[in-house]
Design a protein around this nucleic acid. Structure first.
Lengths: 230, 230
DNA sequence: GAACATTAGTTCGTCAGACGAACGAAAGAG
DNA sequence: CTCTTTCGTTCGTCTGACGAACTAATGTTC
């Protein structure tokens, strides 16, 4: 049907391409939580065999991006309020560690890079649109995590970011939240890159996520009809 | 060859059974880091088809328990000193969160359960053997995490525990480390279950893992021939 | 006409067999 | 002894098949 989605083999296992494509479509909200993912449909969609699709599904399953209902098949995972709270707690803890490690391990060049990025972000983030806010935030994390010298943390955190998915972007729509967020980022950079104060860097990162989490819950409740009394 | 390993279908996808069996064998050091895992060999070993084996491998791969070399196939993952350091940093952060959440969220019954377990551990852990130490420590974590009311944290932490794998158990062989560890556990329980002091509980958990991590590195260097100048 | 039993269709879970591509080791040539 | 060729191994992918479990439609009975 939609040949443009068809994946092209390029020296990487097909399944990885399918994983990426499918993950991206879930993240981009092309598919919604609860939607069924029929193997046959995915085969057609990406132009690959069932073998490939099934292996891709197994990987997304262990990333918790999809949920496989017994004898029913996979659906896009549905997050409850409790899940979101939990994810933000974990995220806060990991990002706290990220800030701490940057303060302790980053090279002078890393520190300069973060400071420079923060400058740029006054326009790309504070006064940017949804897309530029997203990408500058991504860059921020890339530098922060690279400076911390802990690739496992980087990977685990990226997995959490993926799971939180669309809720992460809500913050970019709220101008108030963005300016507050910018203040927090300045505090993080000051502690982690300028002062090299591990404890403060950690606290600043945690606080940043605590606030982001609260907002995500508010947005979640606004978007998802109240199901608490069902 | 070894029909006793053959997996028996019992109302759960075969692949899950294979995942569990394979994971356990890696954890039990039946297979060693770097060992190749030939699909054909695994098919015979567990008496299942390639489809099942390959899907199981995909899951273990995203748990990072195995590493798939391009066009070569999977091997049991090899951890470097840096990986272990990184894993313990992440573990410390997550267990700190676990302690904090227990202090904040646990029911009175949870608290009592943890306090009672600590009593039992004076014999099952402090004066136990390798097996009883392992299982009482597992129980400790089960109660701690259940009280924190964050299933995502529980799952992520369990994944880290799995990846650290055998290094976790080294601590149970060192009598000195065990008594120190027991002291730390008392401190954790006191802060998390008795005082309900979230900050102290967190700090105690982190300190516990910091020390465990240092020991793991020492043991690692003892066991793995020095490769730094290769 | 409503409740229940039966049937047919869908989708997954698993298996078997096949083929090409990439890698590694062994054999042969210079 | 080194370089090249060849061959076997193992993965990556595809196809086709079958039973089991669920869903929906159909039909039967009261």
């Amino acid at each position: 049907m939609d040949a443009s989605r068809r994946v092209t083999p390029v020296a990487a296992p097909l399944r990885n391409l399918v994983v990426r494509a499918l993950r991206q479509e879930i993240l981009d909200d092309v598919m919604h939580p609860g939607d069924r993912l029929l193997e046959s449909a995915l085969c057609e969609r990406y132009g690959v065999s069932r073998t490939v699709v099934r292996e891709a599904l197994r990987q997304l399953e262990s990333e918790r991006l999809i949920t496989v209902l017994p004898n029913r098949g996979p659906i896009v995972s549905v997050l409850s309020v409790h899940d979101i709270t939990s994810l933000y707690e974990v995220r806060g803890s990991l990002e706290g560690l990220a800030g701490e490690l940057f303060a302790r391990n980053a090279s002078e060049a890393d520190a300069v890079a973060l400071i420079n990025l923060l400058d740029k972000m006054e326009s790309t983030y504070l006064h940017g649109d949804l897309r530029s806010r997203g990408s500058s935030k991504d860059t921020f994390y890339r530098i922060l995590l690279a400076g911390g010298r802990n690739e496992i943390l980087a990977e685990d955190l990226s997995r959490v970011h993926t799971r939180i998915g669309i809720f992460r972007h809500y913050a970019f729509l709220d101008e108030d939240r963005v300016s507050t967020s910018m203040l927090e980022l300045r505090r993080i950079v000051d502690a982690a890159a300028r002062q090299r104060d591990a404890a403060r860097a950690r606290a600043a990162c945690e606080e940043h996520i605590r606030l982001a989490g609260e907002l995500a819950i508010v947005e979640y409740r606004r978007r998802v009809p109240d199901l608490t009394h069902s």
